[in-house]
């Protein structure tokens, strides 16, 4: 399966399709961190929310980069389950690099200030930032996989799933939302990270568990749909 992950990463980078999400990621970083100094935890919390659509988009682009017939050839070579998993893993690998840049780049640029009394330490802030980005990445890859051509079959349906999912992720995550459980708790996580003092650790566990549950549901749907849609 690693060889298929590697082949797909190669195709994604060589074809230049990685450029668009790369530029989008840089724009997000510029918007989030360009306006002055902020404490680590809230800055990273909102960065993770903004990266959610970027992760979803890059996943769809990566999965769609491969021609349909090549995807079927890969399916014949490694089997349907591993073929379906390898695409999501390749997207997660690219997304992890994005996460790393999103965490590290603001530091030398002076966008993150030291903690004030009552705020979590710098190290804790960065740790929470990493967690928020990883949760956002998992959810983004899930949404992007559901929006991929292999599942949606048409361009219009694919874009509809991607855009609706990305917008709902934010809108249904707002305070007082009617159905917050429908979407991964990205906004809730960002709010928790922005609170002074930080909410108890139990709340963060709850948010992580919620994301994992949401991702499990989405990836199960993806796996089920991909069984019959090659």
């Amino acid at each position: 399966m690693t060889s298929l992950v590697r082949m797909r990463l190669g195709g994604f980078v060589r074809s230049g399709r990685i450029l668009a999400p790369l530029i989008a990621g840089m724009v997000v970083l510029g918007v989030i961190h360009g306006g002055g100094k902020s404490a680590a935890a809230p800055a990273y919390g909102y960065s993770a929310v903004m990266f959610f659509p970027v992760f979803a988009w890059l996943t769809k682009l990566l999965l769609d980069a491969e021609p349909d017939v090549q995807r079927r050839l890969a399916r014949v070579a490694v089997g349907p389950a591993r073929e379906a998993a390898a695409g999501a893993l390749a997207a997660a690998a690219v997304g992890s690099v994005f996460c790393l840049v999103a965490i590290v780049a603001p530091l030398p640029l002076g966008a993150i200030r030291g903690p004030e009394p009552g705020e979590p330490s710098m190290a804790a802030g960065i740790g929470l930032g990493v967690l928020a980005h990883l949760l956002s990445l998992a959810a983004g890859v899930g949404l992007g996989a559901l929006a991929s051509r292999a599942v949606t079959r048409s361009v219009r349906a694919g874009i509809t799933v991607l855009v609706t999912g990305a917008v709902l992720g934010v809108v249904l995550g707002l305070q007082g939302s009617i159905a917050p459980w429908l979407v991964p708790p990205l906004m809730a996580t960002a709010r928790a990270l922005a609170a002074v003092p930080l909410p108890p650790a139990g709340d963060l566990w709850l948010l992580s568990g919620w994301t994992i549950l949401w991702c499990t549901a989405v990836f199960t749907a993806y796996a089920w749909l991909r069984r019959s849609r090659s």
Partner: peptide, 18 residues
Amino acid sequence: PADQPFTTQQYLTAMSAL
């Protein structure tokens, strides 16, 4: 499916790794 950013050698090497 020839619309792929690989050379013959790169493609076949990747497929043999699969």
